[in-house]
Nucleic acid binder design. Structure first.
Lengths: 333, 333
DNA sequence: GTGAAAGCGCTAACAA
DNA sequence: TTGTTAGCGCTTTCAC
């Protein structure tokens, strides 16, 4: 069913039908009613492709993310979707399963599908990414990593958050704080969070003990393993564990439970994230809350303005920071 | 950059460029190389709209779901995405935030955007849904609810799963098993899970005590509240609590902890879901595991076959069941 | 082997 | 007010 057939049924021309659908231009009331009736009866929907082909607007936003079935991504997408669906845009999903080449592929697909903008929930940004992003010339916003080109990005203040968490642990009297981080290729988490931890210790003149540092890969299992490694390596056990995310913190706790240690009586544990896992765990996990949904909304707003920027608009800042919040639970004391 | 410009740069015609891009028809090797070179240099991507306008295929699948930032939906989408992105399709997201009218809206949008198929992760299906689905005439698969039209659906065997869980609780010697369900408008969860529970009790000739039945709305808070209501209403306390999902189970546990009860020593608790929350909770939650990702994959496969059905293909069954698995944790004994 | 031309469904400029 | 017409970028006959 196309616009011409509708026109024929309503005994008028395609243009008039178009005018009625888009409420543009004049159509005599009588004709308008005839057209509306046919529209109603047929349940006709204009073909978005033909429309987009003409308008060069797809009203679609591409979202690239590492893992859709992860809390942070899910929240982010919820925020993006909330913002954009209210504005009449749809979300095209690009789930990379943490494969870098997939990210580049999706940028190509999105280009083909003529998305009006791209939101990139990034983990690792290679020079190749930058080249491609530059070449694409589609409005883009990055969440979670800095970009060297001046693509706007929405960032979590990992450094200060981790520092504040460490400082908090220090104020509770902890002296041997272990840190479970991730690989440095992830700048935000692997580098900045660890640096915040290190600097907090340094400022209190607490020597860094390399044996208290371990690495995981975001999973419970790796948190469990990292915690075990730390315990087996140190005769002088840690009195607190700071994991770079909640899942690893909970993995660590599960190791501690298996060793019959009580939390927080024997040892404090904290993480980063602040999802339902942390909130409803028992004991409730002390964590840093990042509002991922909010990040999604902020990114959407930045993107939307880029897409509809009027000439006079002043240049927006390239970096926007999302606030964090230290949530003190029952897993530290 | 369009195909004509490419043609001009390669000193040939649009047709030949098209032939090279789609490897259809003959092109002299020399010309082919010239074209490929230009393609390479320009990073040209054909406009998917123009293509789709012609082929009537968008290579896009619309997915409608109640809440993207929920474990089950996220897993489902991950499964769908895994299947379809391998086949060269993209996913268009329709996040309804549990608003029924949004579901209908998305069906319209998807129709406009010419999706090749729709996967509907359903919560509640009204007659209006059926009417619309029928009218759309787009290949569709429903996950999680039955459809009266013969739209293929992927179902979780809620009834037998709930029954088996209840039977398990009975074998552990429990006599007063409370049930925290949800509203009956959700047939799968609200009706079938409860029915499984009720029938398991009936078969053991255990009288149903209305005071042991409560309702929540899937949230932790409602699980907490429902559990409190049950405790306050009954002088003879329950010895087990079966919640219709894990979140409510954990809400219930948190109430029990607040009453200084020990789990499972004083009371058993179990849920349905089997995500990370259940798996890594302490004590590990006894639960029914549904493989949502698998459901997504199965649904995708059904949809894919519908889309590319060859005339001779035998009619597929309308209902496909996804297996469940009883995971016995440490929250019951 | 190749290019000109028609057409996919829609919008917008233009003429009536 | 209305209808005719010319594209949007691509694919696909159909002549050459």
């Amino acid at each position: 069913m196309n616009i011409k057939e509708i026109a024929k049924l309503a005994k008028t021309s395609a243009s008039s039908v178009s005018r009625v659908i888009n409420s543009s231009g004049y159509v005599k009331e009588e004709v308008r009613q005839r057209i509306n009736k046919v529209l109603e009866e047929t349940g006709y929907r204009p073909n978005a492709f033909a429309k987009a082909l003409h308008s060069k607007k797809s009203h679609t936003i591409g979202v690239i993310l590492p893992k859709i079935n992860a809390t942070s991504s899910g929240e982010c997408v919820a925020g993006i979707d909330g913002f954009f669906s209210a504005k009449g845009y749809s979300i095209l999903l690009g789930n990379t399963h943490h494969q870098l080449n997939k990210e580049l592929e999706f940028l190509d697909i999105f280009k083909e599908k003529q998305v009006d903008g791209v939101i990139f929930i990034a983990t690792v940004l290679t020079p190749e990414h930058h080249k491609k992003l530059q070449k694409l010339a589609i409005p883009t916003v990055i969440i979670g990593q800095e970009s060297p080109n001046n693509i706007p990005c929405v960032l979590f203040d990992e450094y200060h958050a981790a520092k504040e968490m460490t400082q908090y642990l220090l104020t509770t009297g902890k002296q041997r704080i272990a840190f479970i981080g991730v690989d440095e290729s992830d700048i935000s988490v692997g580098v900045h969070r660890r640096q915040g931890y290190l600097d907090a210790l340094r400022e209190q003149h607490i020597p860094i003990d390399e044996h208290l540092l371990a690495k995981g890969d975001f999973t419970h299992q790796s948190g469990f393993a990292a915690c075990r490694a730390i315990f087996e390596k140190n005769t002088l056990k840690p009195d607190a564990i700071f994991a770079a995310n909640d899942k690893m913190a909970i993995g660590a706790m599960n190791y501690l439970f298996s060793m019959d240690l009580q939390i927080p009586r024997d040892i404090s544990v904290c993480g980063v994230g602040g999802g339902t896992l942390a909130q409803f765990y028992h004991p409730q996990l002390t964590t840093l809350i990042y509002d991922y949904k909010q990040a999604g909304i902020i990114a959407s707003d930045l993107l939307y303005r880029q897409i509809n920027k009027d000439q006079s608009e002043s240049i927006t800042a390239h970096k926007t920071w999302v606030n964090y919040q230290l949530m003190i639970g029952k897993s530290t004391q």
